[in-house]
């Protein structure tokens, strides 16, 4: 199947872009959103590599819990990086 390598390539490239955006973003809330985008790309990647067990844990933890926790932590500090 040619579809799987193409999906993997696109997901990897998108995740690279999201990681770069998350690292260079000064607005921490936006950085969390970019980080969640990277996690979604990785979830697609894991699904393309036929690992549904990991996809479930990964989605729940990295898109749901991790993002929510970081938002709670940002609420305790400042929103913008100087």
């Amino acid at each position: 199947m040619i579809v799987t390598p193409i999906v993997i390539a696109i997901a990897l490239l998108l995740s690279l872009i999201f990681v770069y955006l998350a690292i260079t973003e000064k607005d921490l809330l936006k950085a969390v959103v970019f980080s969640a985008g990277q996690s979604i790309c990785y979830a697609i990647l894991l699904h393309a590599m036929a690992a549904p067990d990991i996809v479930m844990t990964y989605l729940a933890v990295s898109v749901g819990l991790y993002s929510a926790l970081i938002v709670f932590v940002i609420s305790k500090t400042e929103r913008y990086e100087v």
Partner: peptide, 9 residues
């Protein structure tokens, strides 16, 4: 673990 983390959301 996945079920519990989904529940915690």
């Amino acid at each position: 673990f996945p079920g519990g983390s989904a529940m915690a959301i």
